[in-house]
Design a protein around this nucleic acid. Structure first.
Lengths: 352, 352
DNA sequence: CTGAAAGCGCTTACAG
DNA sequence: CTGAAAGCGCTTACAG
């Protein structure tokens, strides 16, 4: 007779069929009621220390593992946290995700990762799917959710932390949390650095044209205007995805313009890296012939030729802080700050 | 009186409290039993066409959404698929993940992503966590799981597809599925290309030293040996993570050796890219002074100076095929092939 | 501080 | 082809 899962059960008497060790099994062994075991294992207070010890030992002995589905059904919420990021090919978000998982996993939460591809429709769809799983929390990128998405979040009652951007201090802070930095200030800061080098014709080139890239262009424009400089014909916006190859193309387009800008500030490092490589190919000397700056300090930027001046953004800290805020919220704590500005750093290397 | 979730319920009469629309609500509206609605909605056969229509309409009208937790509890399996990848900072796996999600989401499956950091212990841990969620399937990277991990998978009875590497044809194909290509053959192929260029001192440089990198070194060695060439003092293995910066360092180390190799085959593109940039900095002409080849055809390799010769690996196809195999398995289909060789392509650009 | 009862929202056998 | 019963494995009120 083959040893099927069924036949195996015949050898087990006290424990239930199906193989799985349940709370009832643990309770029986510990000599207490299942509810007490449940409370003991979850560390709920108001359980006698000795019973806790007995329950834990019994659970250990039987190799008991709580069933997340049963738990979710009974408690009306799962151990999932939904995370929405635009795209993993942007290394930025890989760092955010890493930090989120590193913070959430030890606390027993599973991350549900949704990739929106910078598409509000898809984000809405993903949100809907994630919400079906009754997550305990939501970590979303940016503030530009569609109206329906916003409504879905609100009505779900699930706490939501927005990452990367900051909710304007003017907004009445009602349940909306954000962790990030001012994209606009960071871009203005980089522009000021370029201005301090004596450049006056500073171009801004952005791709993808997501909200954050646009905010960076606003920061650039602000710094230019404050310096009394024109920005006309210096802004290069391309809706295509941000890549090395596109950076090279945009760079060549800009070079064809006359008068040629003295510096180009790219809205993301991959564009700047592509420009740097193209400059090398064309025999242009950076920064002597033209200065190049990037944004985000992505992998490879320090290895470029010359090494790229860029803005270092705190994405790991953002992922970690967002997770910590969520965790605090789940413990029922009140957050002293609903808006966490983690700042940025201008990293001056040799390309400017 | 404030409108709390509780008080809101008083306005609803027919439907249940708690707000959530349940199967029972749909059944009531459709005038059939809940089981019939359940079967109709899941597309289970053996339900009268008219009742199916009525059930679906009622579900639609009420905005019914099945509860995954209840479903999982009753059916003993969730809608989750566990996916294990080593690291997202290796762009390779971002492509795999993209493809997996693109294939699985439309079928109603949620992806549980675990990042192992190339650590067998962590993989084991992640596996254990994922298995608690009773996934319907597992997609894991490579074949080198720890014994305990292997046991966990086996005993769970959850179908598992291994990605990237191929299970040796000699292994009795019992329940183990694999999709990938021969890392060894691919490396041997690249080495042959280098040999065809007339090089005889061809070095191999690998980092991270995961199983696949090591298989590539074996392929390189095989091709060299077959060509009657020595490999002594030509193999450079570094356990550190594979990065542009490390590639540059290894490159300089190799250059210090004499006689200097005529070509270097890097086990991953990021290393090769770092070498290329360092060559540029040192004023070495590639491939004239030294030829450089990579592996994987990662983003940026085509933009390098000179563009990098490399092996294009079918990671999107791997993710997609693995998903499709899993889907077929879940439908109870028998897979004609338990081992899918998706091949590779030697992409010759200007660096060799 | 502890427990008996009820129920979370589905699906799985089992009848008919 | 359809349904009444039972149960999946927990936790939430509610008592004591």
């Amino acid at each position: 007779m083959p040893l099927t899962p069924q036949s195996r059960n015949t050898t087990m008497t006290a424990t239930r069929a199906k193989g799985r060790v349940t709370l009832a099994d643990v309770a029986r062994l510990a000599g207490v009621s299942p509810i007490t075991v449940s409370r003991a294992l979850r560390g709920e207070r108001a359980v006698d220390a000795e019973l806790v010890a007995r329950a834990k030992e019994a659970a250990q002995r039987l190799g008991y593992v709580p069933d997340p589905a049963a738990r979710a059904l009974a408690s009306r919420h799962s151990s999932h946290v939904g995370v929405l990021v635009p795209m993993l090919s942007n290394a930025l978000f890989v760092d955010v995700l890493e930090a989120v998982q590193r913070s959430l996993r030890p606390e027993g939460f599973q991350t549900l990762i949704g990739i929106t591809h910078y598409d509000a429709q898809e984000e809405e769809q993903l949100l809907e799917e994630q919400l079906q799983h009754r997550p305990v929390g939501l970590l979303v990128t940016g503030l530009q959710q569609s109206n329906r998405a916003r409504l879905l979040i609100e009505r779900s009652g699930v706490p939501c932390i927005h990452m990367m951007e900051l909710i304007p201090p003017t907004e009445p802070s009602q349940q909306r949390y954000s962790v990030g930095f001012s994209q606009e200030d960071a871009a203005a800061g980089m522009t000021q650095h370029l201005l301090s080098r004596g450049h006056t014709r500073i171009a801004f080139a952005g791709a993808q044209l997501d909200a954050r890239t646009l905010q960076r262009s606003v920061g650039w424009k602000r710094a230019m205007t404050q310096a009394g400089l024109p920005t006309t014909a210096l802004e290069w916006l391309n809706p295509a995805a941000s890549t090395l190859a596109l950076g090279g193309q945009i760079f060549e387009q800009i070079l064809a313009q006359s008068p040629r800008p003295q510096a180009i500030f790219f809205g993301n490092d991959d564009l700047a890296q592509g420009a740097l490589l193209t400059a090398l190919r064309l025999g242009l000397r950076v920064p002597h012939d033209i200065a190049i700056a990037g944004f985000n300090d992505l992998v490879g930027s320090a290895q470029m030729l010359p090494p790229l001046t860029t803005v270092r953004t705190p994405r790991s800290a953002i992922g970690e802080t967002a997770s910590r805020m969520l965790l605090a919220l789940l413990r029922g704590e009140h957050l002293p700050q609903t808006r966490m500005d983690l700042g940025f750093e201008i990293v001056i290397r040799e390309s400017t």
